[in-house]
Amino acid sequence: MEKLFLFQNNILQNIPVEFKRYLYEQVPFESRLVGIRGIRGVGKTTLLLQYLKTQSLATSLYITADHPWFYQHSLLETAEEWHKQGGRLLVIDEVHKYANWSSELKNIYDGLPTMRVLFTASSALDIYRGEADLSRRALSFTLHGMSFREYLSLYQIADFPVFSLHQLLTNHQLLAMQIMERLESPLVYFKKYLQTGYLPLGIQTTSAQEYSTRTFRLIDAVLGFDLAFLHDYSASHQSKIRRLLGILADAVPYIPNIQELATTLQVSRNTVLMWLQHLEQGAIIRNIHKEGHGTSMLQKPDKIVLENTNFNYVLGQNPNEGTLRETFIANQLSNAGHHLFLADQGDFIVNNQFILEVGGKNKKKKQISGLSDAWVVKDNIEMGYTNVVPMWLFGFLY
């Protein structure tokens, strides 16, 4: 196992510890089996390695499922050998790249009760629906892209606490004033965040163009490797899914005509619906439904947006401001754990309670007139008033 130890030591030397993602404080690392899902480049590996650096390396081991070691060794026998050598913590990166991940994790959990296992996986992987039943064993968490608050912290612009949606809606003027006492021109940073701030890989790039190129490659890898591997897509299906994403990227926010898409792509209606769900599981798009509508695989979404605003810039030439606004609000609220639906009056209904109407600084209140628990969310304003809230403040929810 010497190769694995050397690999671990090399990896740990370059792991920063100053900035930790929001999920770090939420994960119960002492549990026996914990999985972290998320899109490529979001920081899953860094999060687990930051934790590993707090542990005794005499009893902790990091491995990645695509390491050449596994050409000749199984995951289970590796865990068993490490356990014999006194190992009590095994960190497995990109477990979805290992063919029998689910059954072998189950066997490790059942057969090595003193071994803790932490693992990362693609956002498209349903940890609870593998070959073996992990629902009673594994705790699963999703690491989303960065909030605007995290972006400010990563780039050492300013550090701010998280505040709840209730705090935001009821006390937004005071919160905005407190933030602006330490952050001049929040809108300047916010515009940069919308374009290049969602993934922490931006800290490693020197320009918006480089960030865009790396993000495009990331999206392509999700389509060509993660989704293709997990769902056994043929080369023809991969090509058609890329075409589907191209159609969506040009039209978002998109009110889907499923039959029209099926005809264009020369596949069945159910296949299109399945691909839309796969793209959402892969954190490429977000399918939004009207309140009361089903959200099963074969239920048509009522609106489709890209998962985050950075993707709008990567996949489109000049993203529409209205599109960016809807995408940002849907992204930040969903990532913070809120339930989001399309509203009959206004744009979104959140947690079956709050109505939000999203627009630019000239947006009027007429769409939500007469409604209680209703707010206008305005872009391009620093301060709000009464039930008018600056859009950038929604970036502090996680």
Rank of each mutant, 00 (worst) to 15 (best):
F394K: 08
H172F: 11
R325L: 08
S102A: 07
A138D: 06
E181D: 07
L152Q: 02
S153P: 00
L154A: 13
E150V: 01
Y128C: 00
F225S: 14
T206V: 11
L76T: 08
Y189G: 00
H67N: 15
Y155S: 02
I63D: 11
H166C: 03
W69C: 05
I15N: 07
K363F: 08
N287M: 06
Q173T: 13
G35P: 03
Q353H: 14
F328Q: 09
L273E: 09
L273S: 10
L6Y: 09
L76W: 13
L49Q: 14
Q85L: 13
F225H: 13
L187E: 07
W101R: 01
F396V: 06
D220P: 00
K361M: 04
E80L: 02
W82C: 05
F190I: 04
S103F: 01
Q50I: 11
P200Y: 08
S74N: 02
R286N: 08
K290M: 08
Y211C: 09
V305P: 02
Y254H: 14
Q13M: 05
Y189D: 07
L306Q: 03
R136D: 11
L76E: 14
Q266L: 09
A132F: 11
Q72T: 10
E307W: 02
M115Q: 03
F354V: 06
G360L: 07
G359P: 13
T120L: 10
L227W: 10
S268M: 03
L89W: 08
E357D: 13
F328Y: 15
Y398I: 11
V95A: 11
L342Q: 05
Y109N: 06
L154H: 12
H289Q: 04
Y193F: 15
T64Y: 01
L194F: 04
L306I: 01
I92T: 03
S103D: 11
N362K: 10
T205Y: 00
A228F: 00
L333R: 12
H293Y: 11
E30D: 13
F225M: 02
Q50V: 13
N352R: 15
S212P: 05
L298I: 14
N335A: 14
